[in-house]
Amino acid sequence: MSAAAAMPESGAPDGADRLAVRKTYKLYIGGAFPRSESGRSYVVRDPAGGFLANAALASRKDARDAVVAARKAFAGWSGATAYNRGQVLYRVAELLEGRRAQFAEEVRLTSGAPLREALEEVDAAVDRWVWYAGWADKIAQVRGGANPVAGPYFNFSLPEPAGVVAVLAPQDGPGSALLGLVSVLAPAIVGGSTAVVVASERHPLPAVTLSEVLATSDVPGGVVNVLTGRVAEIAPWLASHMDVNAIDLAGALGAPGALADDLAVAAAENLKRVLRLPAADWAADPGVERMFGYLETKTVWHPMGT
């Protein structure tokens, strides 16, 4: 069992003779692990109310920093070959598999599920990541094509990534902590977009650990940025941010009030692509709607002639 797992609140020495080294859960922005610039943190608890960890409570400034980092990473990530993106993402799955026990423990602690179920969720999450990794160099063929225009042009349409996308990870529910997170993050980045993820407020630990996996993978810094904190506080800044191109409202669906509506209205200011898919059974076949939702279609008229 990795030392990264959260500790009980008692803080008693873990074992007979040594004091455990506890993990500090931080944000992941631009490939680095800063604390919130606000200096704030919040207590993450298990379902029984026991202390699990302190997590960073991200602020508006953190969200903006994350968008800047994601924009900076966009040219490189979207410009990489599809084959390369596929390789890089598959490598992430390899690393996830290597941390299977750590993820399972975090899922178990945060969701209260038995270890066997937690392991199943981790396995499904790894498999899901592999599934998306394999999509990287298929998207253009499935989504693009030649158009038989009446004229001397080679006309073709290709999918292109939307740009910087804000992903509100699912907040709660079976399988949401890791499988749900992977199911909303992977489709955002596989096509070449870069992401700012707002992790589940109550279950952020697998998200932070995932960001550690990403940091040690070949995914360039800034391609994925992970914020922990209150979705109701951070999401409005992302929804109204003029340099964000798309937003997935998964994590706002069950929120009190009309948060999802408010975010969708704010998103209209720069006509973000808004993904508002019905609440998902994360274990089910994910389909392609989420992945395709982050794609633009570019049509090029190329001249033909001698």
């Binding site: 692509r273 808004v274 993904l275 508002r276 898919l277 019905p278 389909g287 709607e289 395709f292 939702g293």
Partner: peptide, 8 residues
Amino acid sequence: DVGGGGDA
């Protein structure tokens, strides 16, 4: 209707 409520 391609099977969801997305705006894609």
